[in-house]
Nucleic acid binder design. Sequence first.
DNA 1: GGCAAATATTTACGCGCGTAAAAAAACTAT
DNA 2: ATAGTTTTTTTACGCGCGTAAATATTTGCC
Lengths: 343, 343
Amino acid sequence: MTVTKIKNMEEFAAVSGLSRPTISKFFNDPQSVRPSTRTRIEEALERFDYRPNIYAVNQNRQLTKTIGIVVPYLADPFFAEIARNIETRCIEEGYSPSLFSSHGRQEQENDILETLRSMKPAGVLIAPLGRISDKAFIERFCKDVPTVLFDSKLEDVGQVFIGSDNMQFTSMMVEYLNRSGDAPCFFEMKTPTNPNARKRRQAYIEAMKRLGHQPKIVQVDGVGWDFEEIGHRGGLEALNNDRFETSTVLCSNDRLAIGFLAACYQKGVRVGLKENCHLRVAGHDNHPFSKFTCPSLTTVSQDYAAISEKSVRMLFDLIASETSDSAHKDTLFEGKLVMRDSA
Amino acid sequence: MTVTKIKNMEEFAAVSGLSRPTISKFFNDPQSVRPSTRTRIEEALERFDYRPNIYAVNQNRQLTKTIGIVVPYLADPFFAEIARNIETRCIEEGYSPSLFSSHGRQEQENDILETLRSMKPAGVLIAPLGRISDKAFIERFCKDVPTVLFDSKLEDVGQVFIGSDNMQFTSMMVEYLNRSGDAPCFFEMKTPTNPNARKRRQAYIEAMKRLGHQPKIVQVDGVGWDFEEIGHRGGLEALNNDRFETSTVLCSNDRLAIGFLAACYQKGVRVGLKENCHLRVAGHDNHPFSKFTCPSLTTVSQDYAAISEKSVRMLFDLIASETSDSAHKDTLFEGKLVMRDSA
DNA sequence: GGCAAATATTTACGCGCGTAAAAAAACTAT
DNA sequence: ATAGTTTTTTTACGCGCGTAAATATTTGCC
């Protein structure tokens, strides 16, 4: 590396012996210049490490190379994991991902979208807060910016949604639990933030009826995203008051199940399949930590990789197509039964 | 809101009946214009929702209002939590935080710093990967950009470090465990990524000697950030081979402990303080999930809020001071014993 | 070697805003 | 009302780069 500091494209063009427009073309698309030219530029890059000023670049672009990623709650390893996958894929495609978390608050979600709008991103991937999202606000955003919604569907918002087939998730699990023991109760929050939760409840009810059982739903209080806490407190309360009519509990999601398992442990309720166990417990999502609960949690796995991959691909399709064909495209992935020790 | 679309500051100046330089001053610092003027602009803002083009703004600023936040592994709720705190504080101060995760890879950490450098941020908060960080690279970065290191200290790098007093953490816990039962073994990874782990080991050894005990360290294989997995696998192996010489195990961190507790459960080893228990287990960090392990985990709590708060304040001091006084300032926070059921 | 096609250069303008300097206007206080 | 101070306006330049058009050069091909 040389001592010379290159401070703009003009100077870099000089040291590489080319003209500025050629350098500009190169940075927009290396393939657009002749191989020999490309080599010369790359050699110069080795010697002088220059990078175009991103602000100057983006100012003159109607469309930047930024991809916005918005998740509702980053402290949930599920979203952290999805975000990681998406980030990686975006980088591979030559885009710069920018990650945001709404931290469970509508106001923040809207602020993020405002910020994003001013960033003129090529596209945005958003997992909305759900029930408490400002639907109209997000809808307007989707009209202006190519946006893919994932995880949490908002009816009639956006052109593309990628998520899980919650009906299939829950049906499969209810059937499994039913044929391997008694029919499950359903353990959930009274007012879940996430629309997936509502689908799961519905699927539970339908599956139970189909199997000739009376649905038995145990709802607990609590708002926000501290699902473990809610599952724990609500679980204790439900156990204390004998609210579970069968010896099998299907939790609306794994985080709730983690809290519930803690409650069981505390109450001395043995969970699992073994002879001396009182209760079977299952969840949904295959949360990264569900393998390490006590006992390890039987659950339905979301296909993280597939959801991330498909979301990104659909976004790039959307960007490429340009046409605002208002055909709503939904993609739902099926889950796989992950059988562990808890049920 | 009116139908008129404002597309630049010129137009916005027109509709608000002021000149562009005044509008420019306002956006740089609302306090710098006369109150009556400020009111007029704010009224116009209500009617026309205009935001300055961030790229044009930043191009002409030597220093942007961006704050970079870099964490080693975002899927760890500990870092997610810290990041959330820091983000919030930055926004309160009128800055735009930009969050990045190194995902446990040196290459990615360096890439992020490269990207950040080109973003001309006002300052950067980074929790380095630790052992596998490219020290020289980070050191160079710190020279160019006001940077606060937190969580994981790299010797002689950067001017400011904020973290926990690992010596105090471990000493306190070892003393507690010793006086409430037998002396603990220390359970850790053979080659930990994080320097905190090394400090904790050292503190363990010293504390044990001070108390007249022989240190008993149980090390397990494994690399990367899947601590639960490593703790689980290593824990099973250690239990199978009777590697714990006492009935108390102090884990280097809570995530390792979570995996270890799962191993104990699986092996039928009862953990806790009660009469019929075989083992006591403790951890470090007060990980968000440690309250929900089975049994709930006794640990030393990091002061998340204090670390975040102090890191941000120190960064703003650094930005304000401008002077590159090379005085290294370290701030270490003490931990508090969190007594739960596991020890 | 000559010709068409592909690529690079020259020249020039514009993006949206920061910012400096001088002039004008609006306040403040007496 | 007047002088003095603060604020705003006018004017103008520059930031680093995208990009268009006309021109010049290189390349591939027979």
